[in-house]
Amino acid sequence: MNKLIVSPSPHDENFVKTHSIMLQVIMALMPALGVSIYIFGPRVVPLTAVCVGSCILFEYVCRRLMKRDNTIGDMSAAVTGLLLAMNLPVTAPYWMAVVGSFVAIVIVKQLFGGIGQNFANPAITARIVLMVGFPTINHWIKPLEYDYDAVSSATPLVLAKKGEELPSYLDMFLGKTGGSLGETCALALLLGGLYLAARKIISLAAPLSFIGSLFIFSWIAGDDPLYQILAGGVFLGAFFMATDYATTPITQKGKVVFGLGCGIITFVIRHFGSYPEGVSFSILLMNVLTPYIEELTRNKPFGAKEVQKNEG
């Protein structure tokens, strides 16, 4: 007879594990990746591969150097790599993809203790670092032409800032506009997001309050609200970044506040700022505020004595 295993309760568990969650996120990004290949051409594939590969490599090396367990099996590095790729223009040089991966994995994630410990979204931070540090990266090509050397075209948001003619709503919804790899096709992102929500991997609280508040504020301010939510990285940010586990609040209430903050900041940057895109900054800013949001939106435990001040 075996020696019986003695352990505290519970003795049963469900089979959703970290790596299976990450795998689902990768699955959910597949439609957007597919559309991206269609819109921006074959270069999408190697660029994505470089991002994913270098993220996994950096994760592995980092953990080795820090003498910690190897964590590439949890697939989170692959997700980060994929998200980073989604945030790059198709013309981004490969070395820049590697730099982005370095920033995302080494600086943002592992230096803060690895999965779950980082306060800022790795892919978003890497995107911002690249956009600010290497402005030449902002080189957008026309959709469906696959001409990587063409003179820089512009994203709808840039066109709008300049007051030029805009693509149709339908083209924007389907992704036939300039932009980074994964952000243009709202439909594909919506599909992925709804899939994750249906599998209970993400909650729709943050995406809805993000997109909803951006819509309402733009409308009040007299911008074209539909256009505002379809343009730029709103859907990518709302469904895949504002739902990141580590860098957004853990409670439902907190998630709503987070999304609201993102929507408002995006609106403010776009409406009042000189910068055409605000999604990345808004998410990063809200990442920083997340601990405070969590503090303020803590659930009131069932039957707790009412001693805390943040009642309600």
Partner: peptide, 24 residues
Amino acid sequence: YDVSKTTSCIRCGRCVRVCPMELV
């Protein structure tokens, strides 16, 4: 019996979602 290792919390919020006492 699954004896898989404990790994880092990914702050997925599942524990919060299920706790009947509304704890974190």
